[in-house]
Every structure is written in structure tokens, then in C-alpha cells.
Amino acid sequence: MPLAIATAVRFCGLMPAEAITAATYNPAQLLGFSDRGSLEVGKRADLILLHHKDERQLAYELGGNPVDLVVCGGKIA
């Protein structure tokens, strides 16, 4: 997914926030997961924590693994 986000920014003209939304919120809604895709009270806690201090770095870095921690259903995976 980091590669897809970086490619969307570099070659499709999306802003980093747009690319991140296109890779998270929009697919969840398309698949009918109304309880996922965004961080809100009452929604399922599926998320990743990145090594980056700013999520926009995700769009400008190719390769490597930026993931520090994975949380699935509120539990560390």
C-alpha cells in the first residue's frame, strides 16, 4: 500500500492526503465496511502506526517498510 500511495502522488497528481484517503476510507466504503476506514469513536480499531513523524512522508518514500505497529480489531497483531 505504501507503494500505491507514493505512485498515486507521483504519477496521478494526488495530494498525499487524497492518496491516503483513496487507499483507506474509500475502499472500506466501497466494500460496505461502514465501521472501518477512518478513526472515529465507535469504529473498529484497525490501524497501523508508522515510523514517520508525518504521514505525508509515506507518499514520497519508495521501498522499505514504514510500519511500526499493526492493530487489528483493537488488538496488537
Rank of each mutant, 00 (worst) to 15 (best):
43 K>C: 01
26 N>D: 13
75 K>G: 10
37 G>R: 10
4 A>V: 14
52 H>Y: 12
25 Y>F: 13
68 D>F: 05
10 R>N: 11
43 K>F: 01
29 Q>D: 11
14 L>N: 10
44 R>N: 01
65 N>C: 11
64 G>S: 06
28 A>N: 12
5 I>L: 13
36 R>Y: 08
57 Q>C: 04
9 V>T: 06
75 K>E: 15
36 R>W: 02
45 A>V: 08
32 G>N: 04
15 M>A: 09
21 T>S: 09
65 N>V: 06
55 E>S: 08
7 T>W: 13
37 G>N: 07
31 L>N: 09
31 L>K: 03
20 I>C: 06
24 T>I: 15
74 G>P: 12
7 T>F: 13
1 M>Q: 14
59 A>M: 01
44 R>W: 00
64 G>I: 05
39 L>Q: 08
31 L>F: 10
34 S>D: 08
74 G>W: 13
67 V>Q: 05
44 R>Q: 07
52 H>C: 06
54 D>K: 02
58 L>P: 00
22 A>D: 11
55 E>I: 12
51 H>I: 03
46 D>H: 04
62 L>K: 07
75 K>D: 10
43 K>Q: 04
39 L>G: 02
51 H>D: 05
45 A>M: 01
22 A>E: 15
33 F>K: 07
49 L>W: 07
3 L>A: 15
46 D>W: 02
33 F>P: 00
39 L>F: 07
72 C>E: 08
11 F>N: 13
41 V>C: 01
30 L>D: 10
70 V>E: 12
54 D>V: 00
45 A>Y: 02
41 V>D: 01
34 S>V: 07
62 L>V: 12
5 I>P: 11
40 E>S: 07
23 A>H: 13
9 V>D: 05
5 I>T: 11
67 V>G: 01
46 D>M: 04
45 A>K: 01
49 L>S: 09
27 P>R: 12
73 G>V: 04
65 N>Q: 10
61 E>S: 06
45 A>E: 00
50 L>R: 05
52 H>I: 01
29 Q>G: 15
17 A>C: 02
74 G>V: 13
12 C>S: 15
28 A>E: 11
37 G>A: 08
55 E>C: 08
40 E>W: 07
7 T>A: 14
69 L>D: 02
43 K>Y: 03
76 I>F: 13
14 L>A: 07
6 A>G: 00
64 G>N: 07
41 V>G: 03
17 A>E: 11
28 A>V: 06
18 E>Y: 02
36 R>A: 09
16 P>M: 00
6 A>K: 04
53 K>P: 04
47 L>C: 05
29 Q>W: 14
5 I>E: 08
23 A>E: 12
42 G>F: 03
10 R>L: 08
39 L>M: 12
44 R>Y: 04
34 S>I: 02
19 A>V: 03
15 M>K: 12
26 N>L: 14
8 A>Q: 14
68 D>A: 08
62 L>S: 06
69 L>E: 04
